[in-house]
Design a protein around this nucleic acid. Sequence first.
DNA 1: CTGAAAGCGCTTACAG
DNA 2: CTGAAAGCGCTTACAG
Lengths: 343, 343
Amino acid sequence: MSRRQQDRVTIYEVAKRSGSSISTVSRVINGDPAVRQDNRERVLRAISELGFVPSGAARGLSRRSTGILGFVFLREEYHATRPEDPEWPGYLDVAMRAAEREAERSGYSLLLSGVRPGDEATVTALTGRVDGLMLMDEVLDEEALDRLAERFPAVWFAGRAGARTTVVRADQDAGVRALAEHLLDGPHRFTDVVAIVGPEAVSDHAARRRALEQVSAARDVRVRLWTVEPGSSGAAGAVATRLAAEPTPEVIICVNDEVAIGTVTALRERGLRVPADVAVTGFDDVWIARYVDPPLTTVRQPVTDLAAQAVRSLVRRLDGDSTDGPIVLPTQLVVRRSCGCVP
Amino acid sequence: MSRRQQDRVTIYEVAKRSGSSISTVSRVINGDPAVRQDNRERVLRAISELGFVPSGAARGLSRRSTGILGFVFLREEYHATRPEDPEWPGYLDVAMRAAEREAERSGYSLLLSGVRPGDEATVTALTGRVDGLMLMDEVLDEEALDRLAERFPAVWFAGRAGARTTVVRADQDAGVRALAEHLLDGPHRFTDVVAIVGPEAVSDHAARRRALEQVSAARDVRVRLWTVEPGSSGAAGAVATRLAAEPTPEVIICVNDEVAIGTVTALRERGLRVPADVAVTGFDDVWIARYVDPPLTTVRQPVTDLAAQAVRSLVRRLDGDSTDGPIVLPTQLVVRRSCGCVP
DNA sequence: CTGAAAGCGCTTACAG
DNA sequence: CTGAAAGCGCTTACAG
């Protein structure tokens, strides 16, 4: 942190060279229409001759605003569900890119920060360098999040329904219901069901699990829950182990598309066909879901929209509008071949 | 940009409450061991009671360093090669995540910025808010890049071999040679070849094209080049059009894995089997390449490493070490089923 | 070991 | 329309 930028050209040198004051230079930089045309041109010329670039730090200090929004997420090794390859980009990456796009539209830059779960200290430190914060669900628990949001503009991305802090989330409940009803009431009327679930601590996972249990209980179907351990070395391996130890179900409902892909692989290694012998479903509808073999039946989450809405809510708050209530976007069942219900 | 942070607690209030001076508070914040234990404790207590967080802007102004590194890339709509779905995460996302990881290890944060091609103004403006910049190849041309790098710490990510500025890149030449030799000299000895290539303006694409032409010329094989237009609405559509208009080749060498996946789809829609009727290869070896049908023969680029090396080079430079020469990482041929050379 | 004071490079009332 | 000056909240010689 002790590295120096090279000698920078300051507003003072521009003022001197253009024969004006720093006030005028500042006005020109900021597009104040009050500056007389000839003065403006003189200043602009000096700026380009000197290669002047305003210091973001000085500007930020003076304006009490950095023009930066922060996106805080869990570092990869703490993700609850991940496939074999640490390089897989998915839900989170799409959200990051979309957030950057939307931030830029509002004149902000996006700062990335991957943290350990519950690392309040790092999040608090970020507070000193950005104007607002967007936090992924698993970063802080509800209490810590509320404590932060009380004194700093923050939105909870994919957070828990009903939180005090503004939450932007997708309707997990409706998505799971549509999926479960399709599987339990559809052409196959599955009764022997396994669900690979994520940890209860992740809001979206908890919501999905609850919805699944409600739908299955109403039909008197017992769902076996298989947990993917946080930091496990890969879904395919974990699923293979369970398959070897337990009776094979008719359908495996997976926590996300990546795990579904791993599950298909694990089933095939046991000589089972998908969907002929076992149906498999995913969640998220990442881009690749339609291209794998078989194409995945899944539930689409509007990740791009979710991220854009989170940024917009934050910007509204920074613009002085009152804090938004919860923002819930719809999910959508996408039926493809992996559930065996279409040819 | 005129939004205000709420009233922040400053170092002055901490000093007053702890009965010390702002110098001492500053020393405590920065872990100066010279501060006497009892004083330190008093200050720490005041900090936590007041919820003090140092202002990044003030600190940055004073230190002449922001602690932020910038990653500049082309906004999505300007990408040369992209599949149908704008949400696909790939090479660039993996690079961003890896850069964030490595930046954090060195005590920096990563700022994202998606720009239009050639947008020097935006890049220059960024210069005021970060300590160093990592630019994707297509953002600026070599001249603009060198102009920037002369006065500001910058590395060129996947840039042109031989540039004056520090370039971090993968060995495209070796990767393409290995692939082309496998196809032209391997079991099938293909002679009727199509290559779907990216724009010459992208350094990696130009390098690959050159290597392919050299290998094929040496064997007297003529390669038909199909160009994927920047901003085209999708590889599958473009490929379908060419397939309808020209004789079907024995093998289609694709510019990346996403295009390969689109190509497989387009071929199938014409009733052609892959690899039985036409072989297809990709490039990059994104995570999904092994899971699609058929699994893709491709060339692996060490994207994570590339990003980490770029950040490290930048940090070395900021630490006062001299500027690095070009950094070239190896690529690797990965043979799977899509080329038809293995069962 | 500690404090008073200058300085980092901007923005913005305020006065003219 | 323009400038002098104060202020944003830190760090860091310098003196003690």
